[in-house]
Amino acid sequence: MGKIFDVEFMIEIIPDILKGIPYTMTLAVISFIVGLFIGLIGALIKIYKVPVLRFITGVYVSFFRGTPLIVQILLFYYGIPILLRIINQRFGTSFDVSGVPAMVFMLVAFSVSSGAYLTESIRAAIISVDKGQLESAYSVGMNTTQAMIRIVLPQAVKVALPVFANFFIGLLKDTSLAFAASVTEIMGQAKIEAGRASRFFEAYIDAALIYWAICIIFEFLVVRMERNVRKNERGMEK
C-alpha cells in the first residue's frame, strides 16, 4: 500500500511541470498583446460607428463573449485544418496542416477571444475620458490621430489598467484549457506527470501553486505600473 499523499513525488515533479511555463507565458502574453490591438481597432470602430465594420465587430464581440472558451478552442483546433483543406481545394494550394504546431492554433484562438473582451474594455475606457479633452486637443490644432495618441489614450489607459490586469490574470489561467489541444503548458505537463504515476492530486497541487505564484508576481508588477500611469494624481512632476 503506497502513501496517501506523496510529498516527495510532489516536489520531484515540480521541475517537469515548470517546463510548461514558457508555453503558458507565451500564450498569455502574445494573445494579450494581439488582443489589445484587435480590441483597440474594435473599440475605435464602435466609437466612430464605422459603417459595415461596426456590424461585423458587433457580431464578433457577441459571439466570442457568448460562447465558452473551451468550445472556441475546439472550434479552432478542428476548424482551421478544415478551412485550410477547403482553401487548398479551391485554390490548388498545398498548405500542410499537420506541419502547424497546435500552439499556433491556440495563439490564434486566445488572441481572437481576448480581442473580443478587450474591445469592450477599451471602448469603455476611451468613452470614460471627458469629451472636452478631445475638443481642446482639436482646438489647439491636433488631428484625431494625434489627439487619440497624445491625449485620450494615455488617460484611457489609466482607467483601463486595473481592468487589463484583471483580464490578464483570467487569461493566464484560461491558458490551462490549451491542454485540450495537446499543448504542453503548465496544466498539460501536470497532466502528463499525474498520469505517469497515477498521482493526480499531487500534480494538480503543483500546478495550482505555480499559477498562483505567477499571478502574485504579476500583481506586484501591476501595482508598480499603476503608480506610473497615475503620476498626474501626485500633483506635480518631481
Binding site: D130, G132, Q133, E135, S136, A137, Y138, S139, V140, G141, R150, I151, P154, Q155, K158, N232
Partner: peptide, 17 residues
C-alpha cells in the same frame, strides 16, 4: 484651427500633462 485659439468654460486642460 491653425488660426484660432479657444478657451473653454471648463478649462479643457490636458489632464495627463
Amino acid at each position: 484651427r491653425k488660426r484660432t485659439g479657444m478657451v473653454f468654460q471648463n478649462f479643457g486642460l490636458f489632464e495627463n500633462k
